[in-house]
Write a protein that binds this DNA or RNA. Structure first.
Lengths: 235, 235
DNA sequence: CGTGTATTTGAACCGCCTCAATCCCTGTGG
DNA sequence: CCACAGGGATTGAGGCGGTTCAAATACACG
């Protein structure tokens, strides 16, 4: 991936409503301090206790932000998809590690100090970054709602609905339109506070209940969106 | 509470490292668009589906951000204490309500558009607001870790540790130093995804195990901080 | 076409929820 | 000063759901 194409990709990701030329221009300043890097599945993009001197944006692939507890359990707090920023914190050092979960995960890195200076001088950049901070807040709040559900089927159902909102639709092997989950059952479990077996059982249950259909373990189509939404309804 | 004292209070809350005169001056611009209001316990500071046109800061008291699901269960996603900002979102309308949980909860309100314009013109304000967004992100991530724990005792233990970091210490009735929880067992339960009975049992267990001491149901002193921290350790 | 990993399924145990009763603390009125 | 009321907190008993441990199956990659 060349730097130019990554800039255009970024512009498309984070300024979708702005004409191509304008948004590329607006990001030009930021782009000068941007470092793009490609990661393989399982590689550590941010390590624990690293200085928190950079902000990041996923351009393609997927990553997750997590901690590993002393008992060996891993807790995933954020799943990062293309267009998602991460690395925002008041801490000096990272309390959470970030790891690529797909091969060819491309991530842009912005030195925090310089990005802040650029934002101070350009209100479009400032607006874009603020918007991305709000996206992060919305994402975490949404995740909190999912994790806070009581039953495993509800957790997994809400999770799949969110994924269907965040991932692109594609034609699956079975002919349906659906999504391709970038993560394993274990990853889902560590995100929802469940065991992998329970996640698997919940998915089987949703399938046999007609809420979803599968074309391979990672390929999910939402069949009864209405039914799933009613279960997670919050009003 | 007069406007002047509320400005000083705000300055003390969000710019603790800056000399009094400087921080008050830095917030002067923002202060011109600030509206201060006092709320009683249970009153709605933000309603569901309200336009998301303002940002807020708790100056005193406490509030929480929550949704009520169709099954009647309430889910609290954020506990807001003095110095905490809230209202940050990309949405046009509120997906979460915010309610005062103590009498005499004083909240500052900033019209979003005007606050953004002020931030664009003043990099101290800009920095302060960015810092508060990061605080919100850190708080939600921390909350995700607590809610994601597997056992009830661990959840409640982590919750109490967080409270002891966020609330001021005071001399309790039993002579120990400790914290005064601003919320009921039911509130804690709706924050942790537990039943109120389980919260109560967990607290009793922590007490009989020597991890904490109580001087009244809301008065908690952390006796064995090391032990509690080891349980929630994440590295 | 084989090997290692991911996923599914099964059985038994443990912990949390539900329902219910009791206790405690505070404020109110007699 | 006491009786009472009401909300919050605690404690108890039983049922259900999720975890754990174990095994079988499906899948992807060489």
């Amino acid at each position: 991936m060349t730097e130019v194409s990554s800039l255009q990709l970024l512009a498309r990701r984070i300024l979708p409503d702005t004409p191509v030329a304008d948004r590329t221009a607006a990001l030009g300043l930021l782009h000068r301090v941007t470092r793009i890097k490609r990661w393989g599945s399982g590689e550590n993009i941010c390590g624990l206790d690293d200085p928190a001197d950079d902000w990041f944006c996923v351009l393609s692939g997927a990553a997750h932000e997590y901690v590993v507890r002393s008992d060996g359990r891993r807790h995933i707090v954020d799943l990062l998809l293309p267009g998602d920023f991460f690395g925002f914190t008041t801490q000096d050092r990272r309390r959470f590690a970030v790891q690529a979960v797909l091969d060819d995960t491309v991530v842009a890195r912005y030195p925090r100090e310089r990005a802040e200076a650029i934002a101070d001088a350009d209100r479009t950049i400032s607006r874009v970054l603020r918007e991305q901070m709000f996206e992060t807040i919305d994402r975490l709040r949404q995740q909190l709602l999912v994790v806070g559900r009581t039953s495993a089927v509800e957790k997994v159902g809400s999770f799949l609905l969110r994924m269907s909102e965040r991932l692109p639709y594609a034609r699956l092997a079975n002919g349906d339109d659906g999504i391709s989950l970038p993560i394993t059952r274990y990853d889902i479990a560590d995100q929802l506070g469940l065991s992998a077996e329970t996640v698997s059982r919940a998915i089987s249950e949703l399938k046999s209940g007609g809420a979803i259909a599968l074309g391979g373990p990672r390929m999910v189509s939402i069949v009864d969106r209405r039914g799933l939404e009613e279960r997670r309804e919050h009003a």
